[in-house]
Amino acid sequence: MSIGQIVERNITSLKAYAGNARTHSKKQIKQIAASIERFGFTNPVLVSDDGEIIAGHGRGLRCEIARVESGANNCAVAPLGS
């Protein structure tokens, strides 16, 4: 498996992995947002070829919140290829 180049992808094209065992509280999402605002998007969401989130569900949630709040439609992702 190889990690592709980091790209911007429309948040509506991403879908959460149904088997993700981890949940994020509102406090954690706010902490993620503060980190992204302070340092930038340094750790992209890892996605499969079909847009399923493999890692970075919290960052994906933050992107979704930003889309609703400010109309920002894109999220930094690194596609994982086979």
Rank of each mutant, 00 (worst) to 15 (best):
V47I: 15
V77A: 01
I3V: 13
Q28K: 13
S82G: 11
L14I: 09
L14W: 01
G56C: 02
K30V: 06
C75T: 09
S2I: 15
G40D: 04
S48D: 11
A55E: 15
V77R: 00
Q31T: 12
K30H: 06
S70Y: 09
E37V: 04
A78Q: 08
E69Y: 01
I11C: 05
A21L: 13
E52K: 11
A72Q: 14
E64T: 14
V77G: 05
L14E: 00
P44R: 00
P44H: 05
D49E: 15
V7D: 05
T12K: 10
H24V: 01
G58N: 08
T23N: 10
L46D: 05
P79S: 07
L14Q: 08
G71N: 02
I36L: 13
E64F: 07
Q5I: 11
G4I: 08
E8F: 07
A66W: 04
H24I: 00
S2E: 12
G40P: 03
I32H: 04
K26H: 01
T23Q: 13
S25W: 02
G71M: 03
I32E: 04
H24Q: 06
G19R: 14
L61N: 01
R22G: 03
E37F: 03
G60V: 00
A16V: 15
V77K: 05
G58T: 07
D49Q: 14
S35I: 02
G56E: 02
P44V: 03
A21M: 11
C75W: 01
G4R: 03
D49M: 12
A16Y: 10
I11M: 03
I29P: 02
V7L: 11
R9S: 08
G4L: 05
I32W: 04
V45Y: 02
I3C: 05
N10L: 08
